[in-house]
Design a protein around this nucleic acid. Structure first.
Length: 546
RNA sequence: GCGCCUGUGGCCCAAUGGAUAGGGCACCAGCCUCCGGAGCUGGGUGUGUGGGUUCGAUUCCCACCAGGCGCACCA
């Protein structure tokens, strides 16, 4: 039987609040939490405390009226087979206690349906575009890009799993200032290789890879019309390969060059001009972004007649909406944070809802080795690349580690720890639990027919804790989507692995009486399904043995 | 100067405004005739400073202190 008890309880509370006071708008008020301690039941709401001020009553008084209404509804809707008790506890929490039957039913459901039982439909097929990485094709990807790639890809995985129609996009700056400088860097290196004395400007691309490209261009000189385009194409190939090896696949690559050639930039500017949001000053064309919350107006066409970066970006985002996306998510590095307000201003000026676009700043990742920071200098072309991290620690550890702090927080990536094959390394900790289960299941498969399987044989404390932990998976996905941060998944998987290891240590699966052994085999298979789904969403491999 | 991120036990970090602030490392002491010991169990006088909002603040607001990053008619 399909039942999202969490959603049901939320609706019950909202209904009960309406009965209590018809003026309340309970939609945004009701939150359900997992209590800090399982002796406070399975779900908890703080609604009585939150309403104390508005209703001018004590939390206890509010709960005292709310609880009987809830109990009545539960009884009339025959939910009492799953909810056994509602209590007012602590400072005014209303705690819901579930029956064992609820958890046994959920477990049976998961055993029968497998990973489909874990799907929840939050997105209702809403089309979402997640744009991330979008690094200029002027050099290898850095660890900062790597973190954006991991976060973006995994957020996309989670949203796709929870019912959104997700498109991963890479915006390609394939023309403009940086590409020109790239081209000139190549030309200079070619001259140098030909024996000419050159002076190489500091703001040109310093890396050794420019020599490689210069040699290649020199080799096929007649065919290469634009060294800049050639170099960008060459480097883009490297970037694509790096991303592929990192397990990140984009659905679309959006070229700035084609955007300009399509005339969409001029169209977008004409649109804003019609609305009266553009004006000329000092020979440049300005966008009145202050009218939409920015702290100063921004230039869109420079006095020399060329676009600033903002102009194509306005057109690009307009095009995202025109392509039918209802939700736009951009992942940017912290150096772009000052740019948020002007882009949001543009979205508003274009007539779209501010809530339809989320800009997530992915904080910097720094690299250390055995606790010692590894210094980087982009200017000198010396920085740790995604490629180096991949070569050193592998895809699994890299993807997991980049998500181990909240996306909005700095992350220190210690290469030594990521390489360790011990409990210090959470990737191995989770994979080890998975492999342990696989090992047991190799020697004996569970009986999957519901008639022959009696999950009620699972009575030990560690077994019940494990079942409850499994049940929380859906909520974790929910939190990831709401907070637009897939980080929570790594925390949950570590907890699930820990819960399993504790169970494993105290109770034997094989060699019990057949009723208990079947039930435990089914339980660990369910754990493996959840663990496996979680690892899959992270893009981390699920080893059958290690 | 302005903006963003971060200050939690010896060290690294958790806690979508909630209940007794949790883990890991290190250190000490235990657990394999038994499904994988890459595991488990036990051991803890800690939220940078000062205010504020709240029934309740590690979390939100203000000021300060400390560290990191960013502040173009670059992209």
């Amino acid at each position: 039987m399909e039942l999202d008890l969490q959603a049901t309880i939320k609706e019950l509370i909202q209904g009960a609040l309406k009965e209590l006071d018809n003026d309340l708008e309970p939609k945004d008020l009701v939150y359900l939490d997992f209590p800090t301690d399982n002796r406070f039941g399975e779900l908890s709401t703080n609604i009585a405390m939150r309403l104390a001020r508005t209703l001018k009553k004590s939390p206890a008084q509010i709960a005292g009226r709310l609880i009987p209404i809830l109990e009545e509804k539960i009884k009339s809707q025959k939910l009492d087979i799953y909810i056994k008790d509602i209590k007012l506890e602590g400072a005014g929490f209303i705690n819901f206690y579930f029956t064992d039957r609820f958890f046994y039913d959920r477990l049976s459901d998961l055993i029968v349906k497998g990973r489909d039982a874990l799907r929840i439909n939050l997105g209702h097929a809403a089309p979402v575009i997640i744009e991330f990485v979008s690094a200029n094709p002027t050099g290898a990807l850095s660890v900062a890009h790597a973190r954006q790639a991991a976060v973006g890809d995994i957020l996309a995985n989670v949203m796709a799993f929870t019912g959104f129609k997700v498109n991963r996009e890479y915006y390609l700056n394939d023309e403009g200032n940086q590409i020109n400088i790239l081209g000139e860097s190549v030309v200079l290196r070619m001259k140098e290789l030909a024996g000419e004395r050159i002076e190489f400007p500091e703001n040109y691309y310093q890396g050794d890879y420019i020599y490689d490209i210069a040699r290649e261009v020199a080799g096929r000189r007649p065919q290469v019309v634009s060294p800049g385009d050639f170099a960008a194409g060459h480097i883009l190939g490297i970037i694509k390969k790096e991303l592929e090896d990192f397990g990140v696949k984009f659905d679309s690559w959006y070229s700035q060059k084609s955007l300009r050639e399509s005339g969409k930039i001029d169209e977008a500017l004409a649109f804003l001009k019609d609305k009266g949001f553009l004006y000329e000053e000092d020979g440049a064309l300005w966008f009145k972004s202050t009218q939409f919350g920015d702290d100063k107006d921004r230039v869109v066409i420079k006095s020399d007649g060329s676009y600033t970066y903002l102009a194509p970006d306005i057109a690009y985002h307009r095009d995202k909406y025109k392509r039918g996306f209802k939700k736009i998510i951009n992942l940017w590095g912290p150096d772009h944070h000052g740019y948020i307000n002007r882009l949001k201003a543009a979205v508003l000026a274009l007539g779209y809802d501010a809530g339809s676009i989320s800009i997530i700043i992915v904080q910097l990742a720094t690299i250390s080795r055995g606790g010692q920071p590894v210094l980087m200098s982009t200017r000198r072309g010396q920085y740790i690349t995604l490629r180096e991290v991949l070569d050193e620690v592998g895809k699994d550890a890299a993807r997991f580690f980049f998500l181990m702090r909240r996306t909005s927080s700095h992350l220190d990536f210690d290469l030594e720890v990521a390489k360790k094959q011990s409990s210090e390394n959470p990737v191995y900790y989770c994979q080890y639990a998975y492999a342990r289960i696989a090992s047991i299941l190799r020697s004996s498969s569970p009986v999957l027919k519901p008639g022959e399987l009696d999950v009620r044989a699972l009575q030990e404390k560690e077994e019940l804790v494990l079942i409850k932990k499994i049940w929380q998976f859906n909520s974790i996905l929910n939190i990831c989507v709401i907070t637009e941060d897939p980080y929570w998944l790594t925390v949950y998987l570590q907890e699930l692995a820990e819960t399993f290891h504790k169970f494993y240590d105290l109770h034997r699966v094989l060699g019990q009486d057949s009723r208990l052994t079947s039930a435990r085999l089914a339980l660990i298979q369910a754990v493996q399904t959840v663990l496996g789904t979680g690892l899959e969403l992270l893009g981390v491999s699920r080893p059958e043995s290690m």
